[in-house]
């Protein structure tokens, strides 16, 4: 989190310092500023955490594209495999499988065989039963991959609570030595699979996982609920009786009301300059935020 601006630093603004007597108005403004800043920082940190996690996942996919580094893989490599998968969501796992099969490798990253889409030719997809079966060298690998994928969290890693990455257990055949193994090899396995979070807490740091400390207080505040805005009435021209079926207006008719996205490009008739409207505080803080981010 290098480069994070602490909330305290920013709040020492001249406006609150230089004036000896603070009017109510100024106080309210300062409060509002603080709140907006809190919101902005919360979102900035969240966006940054999200970017970091996404970058990590991409790097991990790239690493796992070259997996396994040797055949048979070592227990340390199996452990790395599991650690690299920890931040994944199931969709990221699908991306990994996609990239591996494109590269001519079995979708299960601990297997170095070719997927059946390569070995069986183009008709593999319909000759094999099971969704995605052609992406693996065998049904065995398909089963193993599903076993792993099922344990991945649907929650994006940046939204997970600290240390709440899933503990992924490998399929039995790929598990480290247990009963038959000597205590020494068991220990080696344990050493290699030390949790990142444990190591981090030993160092006195917070491990990966994102908790926005700035705006998290111990006090619980009741969330204000507002009733949702009533949907916009359909323009009378489109809501003519012939459109409605027993009082229900089909979706297609209402769609015409919505502007299309492309409109923003070609059909804006706004001519610059826009009047020089003073920005609201919220706008300003958002802008500062986005400017900071674009530098990154």
């Amino acid at each position: 989190m290098a480069g994070t601006i602490s909330a305290k630093g920013i709040l020492k603004q001249p406006s609150t310092q230089s004036t000896p007597s603070i009017s109510d108005e100024q106080k309210a403004k300062a409060d509002r500023d603080r709140r907006n800043l809190g919101i902005a920082l919360f979102h900035a940190n969240k966006i940054r955490a999200q970017k970091d996690v996404e970058a990590t996942i991409l790097t991990n996919i790239e690493t796992l594209l070259e997996y396994p580094p040797q055949t048979p893989f070592t227990s340390a490599q199996a452990s790395t495999f599991v650690q690299l998968l920890a931040p994944f969501q199931p969709s990221d796992f699908d991306s990994l499988v996609e990239e591996r099969t494109l590269d001519g490798k079995c979708g299960y990253a601990l297997c170095s065989n070719a997927p059946r889409s390569k070995s069986m030719g183009s008709n593999a997809a319909w000759r094999l039963k099971g969704h995605g079966a052609q992406d693996y060298c065998s049904n065995e690998c398909l089963r193993k991959a599903l076993h792993v994928k099922m344990q991945l969290s649907e929650v994006p890693a940046w939204d997970r609570e600290l240390g709440r990455d899933p503990d992924i257990v490998l399929p039995e055949t790929d598990r480290p030595p247990t009963t038959h193994a000597t205590s020494e090899s068991r220990q080696r396995w344990h050493q290699s699979s030390v949790n990142d979070d444990e190591l981090a807490s030993e160092r006195g740091e917070k491990a990966r996982g994102f908790r926005p400390t700035q705006v998290m207080a111990d006090t619980i505040v009741e969330k204000k609920t507002t009733s949702p805005k009533p949907s916009e009435p359909i323009s009378p021209a489109l809501a003519t009786p012939h459109d409605s079926i027993e009082g229900y207006i089909p979706v297609q008719a209402t769609k015409k009301v919505q502007p299309t996205e492309r409109r923003t490009t070609f059909a804006s008739d706004v001519v610059v300059p826009r009047p020089n409207i003073p920005e609201t505080d919220e706008e300003a803080s958002w802008k500062a935020l986005f400017e900071n981010m674009s530098i990154r």
């Binding site: 490009t265 804006s268 610059v272 300059p273 020089n276 409207i277 802008k287």
Partner: peptide
Amino acid sequence: RYRLKETQLPRIRVDDPM
């Protein structure tokens, strides 16, 4: 000339076709 900040201009997304 218009005493504007760039942020006051209308925008175009970099993924817009043009």
